[in-house]
Write a protein that binds this DNA or RNA. Structure first.
Lengths: 253, 253
DNA sequence: TTTCATACTTTGTTCAAACATTGGCATGTC
DNA sequence: GACATGCCAATGTTTGAACAAAGTATGAAA
């Protein structure tokens, strides 16, 4: 049965057969919203394909196309004989290429929150100056950001921006950084050189990320180059790893 | 027309309707081979869906399921009114590529030493079975290795090898693993999917890597796929990070 | 020559239907 | 209790069909 206690009759969204957006795409949107709703996580299972397709007013095949993409994306899991369930959120980030953290989380349906933004101008420490190919002591813009979701901090970024970008300390740093730089400075981020290590949280990081001192953190040192291979940013990023995983797709080289 | 000069009559592979492997999966394999063949890159286009499905002896829908996955994977590109084309391989240098640990260290002039090698056959734990796409409990070869240099351990690998490789426990695992597999099994490692996190050393790891319990370690969960995108190895790697950094060169994506 | 309509090829979308396979559950037997 | 059996519900697979939309090629009209 479709309307048993587990799957109460919802406002059965009927899809628009006249929209220029294909039905499978509309169905995908509906499913994405369903995924966010807690009742489906709680219930464990989504309504079965036959009744769901009926309630959406589309055929089972069309619905399956939408579900299939969400499965491929890792947001749903299907099992023959059982049903379709919302994947337990194991948040991941990254591919062989990198993106804005905010946009990447957005794509996963997670609303990124900013917990603190501090902007200051300071003399570049030696390591930073080396990475940015500057004389030690050159003044750079330093950006501290803590981000997370569901009220919990998850990652701390400390970015040093190359003076070439000519960004002022009162710019709007709440939007994705690389888009800001692209628009304001016409400098486009292109590649990054990264180093990954594990470190213990010191007192400062422990406070910022709301963990105990000594908690293992993933540390990511990153130098971002623009399309002209000039360094534009050096960042030290610390991730808590309890709700987050950095994922990579690499190729044999 | 299907058999014009652009798309000469190939040995029309008819798929096996009695195989346990679904037709769409078989079609996917055929397409993967096609993608590698230069004549299709040269021709610019693959045969059109209708004639290709006929020559494979399957319906257009079934073929489209296979093509759809390869499109999602970025290996094929479809355009309405035009056809389906093999994606031009993007030429990139040193992009998010991985190598043998041993060879990578070699390149840095560091002589890698093996401190312990344990080989055992055991039932695949659930997570491992999932990554290798095996039924839980299938017997797999499990390889434990500790490597380092200057008399200090630096990294611990625990590899689970897919039974398809048919490697016996008494093979010579002192040489680089992927070369061994390549020679012994003619299976070539091609890509990897990785997850990076930071963890605290438990007692076992602390002993193996000669660090204090609780020391932050870089944990790298890696599924290695062969050229046919079949999983061949799942490995959990732990690095001490005091003498070692995992470096990556990524591109904006 | 340029422009435009039209036919044709190819992929895109959608449907209904049938059967296979998987897993959970109840019912039975020993 | 242990085990086999069979039913049921759910996803998995496959097909044939029809029409839509995109892009190319052709030929007629301006």
């Amino acid at each position: 049965m479709s309307n048993n206690s587990k799957h109460p009759a919802r406002a059965t969204v009927r899809l628009d057969h006249k929209s220029h957006l294909p039905l499978h795409a509309q169905a995908e949107q509906v499913l994405r919203e369903m995924i966010l709703r807690p009742e489906h996580r709680a219930a464990g299972l989504l309504p079965d394909e036959v009744s769901l397709s009926r309630s959406l007013g589309i055929s089972r095949n069309t619905l399956r196309a939408a579900i299939g993409r969400l499965v491929a994306e890792g947001r749903l899991e299907r099992k023959a004989g059982i049903g379709t369930r919302v994947t337990e959120p194991k948040v991941q980030s990254g591919v062989g290429a990198w993106h804005s953290f905010t946009r990447e989380m957005d794509a996963k349906g997670i609303k990124v929150e900013s917990y603190s933004i501090k902007v200051q101008v300071l003399a570049a420490p030696d390591g930073v100056a080396r990475e940015l190919q500057l004389k030690p002591g050159t003044e750079v813009l330093c950006l501290d950001r803590v981000r997370g979701w569901d009220g919990q901090p998850e990652v701390h970024f400390r970015s040093y921006l190359h003076p070439r970008l000519k960004l002022s300390a009162d710019a709007d740093f709440s939007q994705p950084l690389y888009e800001l730089v692209k628009e304001q400075c016409s400098i486009v981020a292109d590649q990054s050189q990264e180093e990954l290590t594990a470190v213990a949280a010191d007192r400062r990081l422990a406070r910022l990320l709301d963990v105990k001192t000594g908690t293992p953190l993933l540390r990511r040192d990153r130098t971002v180059l623009d399309t002209g291979r000039r360094p534009m940013e050096f960042a030290v990023v610390h991730y808590r790893c309890d709700r987050f995983r950095l994922t990579l797709n690499l190729r044999q080289g």
